[in-house]
Each structure stands twice: as structure tokens, then as C-alpha cells.
């Protein structure tokens, strides 16, 4: 499911960001190839990617909105709706699973007040999701809080992490 902006839409690609995108376009022989980087620019600016933003990206890169949506929905890291201020991803794939990752998830849900996976806490500060292998299996359990990668998280360490980001 995708969502629309609630406020009047301000374009993401200001002259400044547009210049940044132009630089990126020099790296590729097609405009389409800059789609993933352009979507990252949107998410960095807005925290998520709305339907209107997809339409804007489509215009900027000469694609159709439907095409852009098809790509956005393929990749799990693009948010289709707003998320909590702290977006937490916890690996629960086998190597971490056997080292207790599911208990880390439980501790996170409890201490952030999220209650359940994917839901945002009542204070709007936290969203916790389970993800597949984060490529750091020897450091079980790795979690990501926004862009910060935190290794070797145990249920005991969760409270401290939650306090730090609150």
C-alpha cells in the first residue's frame, strides 16, 4: 500500500538537489539508471517516498509514475509510509536466530513501547521491524537504528540503546 502526502507537496528536487542528481547522471549512460540514487535522495529528504514524490521522480527522470512505483515496491528499504523517528531493523535470520535474535526483538518491542512489529510507538519515536540477514552474522545480533549499524546486541543491552536514541 502506498500513501499520499497530507500537507501541500513541496518538490524534493530543489535546484540544489537537482544539481546533485545531474552529477549522478554523468555516471550512467541512461537516465533510468539514476532511479535508485534519486529515490535515496527522496528518502533522505523526506523520510519516506509518497506517491507524489514518485511522480516527481518520474518527471525528473523521464519515466512514468507507474514504472517508478513498480521499482520502489520491489526494494524493501524504501518506505512507502512515514515511520517512527527511530526506525529499527533487527536481523532474525538463522545465524542470528540461533543466537537469540528473537529475544532481542521482544526486548525492543517492550522497551520502545511499539508493542508489535511494524507499528509505530504512541510517541511516534519508534518503529521496529524484523529483517533478513544484515551481513554481520558473526556479530549476532546486529540491528540498525536509522543509518547506525549496531553489533552484538543482546536483550540486556536494549534498554541502554533505547535510552540513547530517545
Amino acid at each position: 500500500m502506498t500513501m499520499h502526502d497530507t500537507k501541500p507537496y513541496e518538490p524534493v528536487f530543489t535546484p540544489e538537489r537537482r544539481a546533485g542528481l545531474e552529477e549522478l547522471l554523468k555516471r550512467y549512460p541512461t537516465k533510468r539508471a539514476a532511479l535508485l540514487p534519486a529515490l535515496w535522495m527522496v528518502q533522505e529528504a523526506r523520510g519516506w517516498i509518497s506517491d507524489t514524490a514518485m511522480t516527481e521522480v518520474a518527471e525528473v527522470l523521464g519515466l512514468t509514475p507507474a514504472y517508478v512505483k513498480g521499482v520502489v515496491t520491489f526494494y524493501t528499504m524504501y518506505h512507502l509510509h512515514p515511520v517512527g523517528k527511530n526506525f529499527v531493523q533487527v536481523c532474525t535470520t538463522t545465524p542470528c536466530n540461533i543466537c537469540g535474535a528473537e529475544n532481542v526483538v521482544k526486548a525492543l518491542l517492550q522497551h520502545t513501547g511499539c508493542g508489535e512489529l511494524g507499528a509505530t510507538s504512541p510517541d511516534g519515536k519508534w518503529t521496529v521491524i524484523e529483517v533478513e540477514c544484515l551481513g554481520a552474522c558473526g556479530f549476532a545480533t546486529p540491528i540498525m537504528v536509522n543509518d547506525d549499524f549496531i553489533e552484538s546486541v543482546t536483550p540486556e543491552k536494549v534498554l541502554e540503546i533505547v535510552r540513547k536514541y530517545s
Binding site: T93, T94, P95, E132, C133, G135, A136, C137, G138, F139
Partner: peptide, 11 residues
């Protein structure tokens, strides 16, 4: 892309 569960060397 290193996403194969169990692998974390390229990182």
C-alpha cells in the same frame, strides 16, 4: 551485495 546468510567477509 553480500546478503547470503552466514556471510560477512566482504563487509
Amino acid at each position: 551485495d553480500e546478503s547470503e546468510p552466514g556471510t560477512f567477509k566482504d563487509r
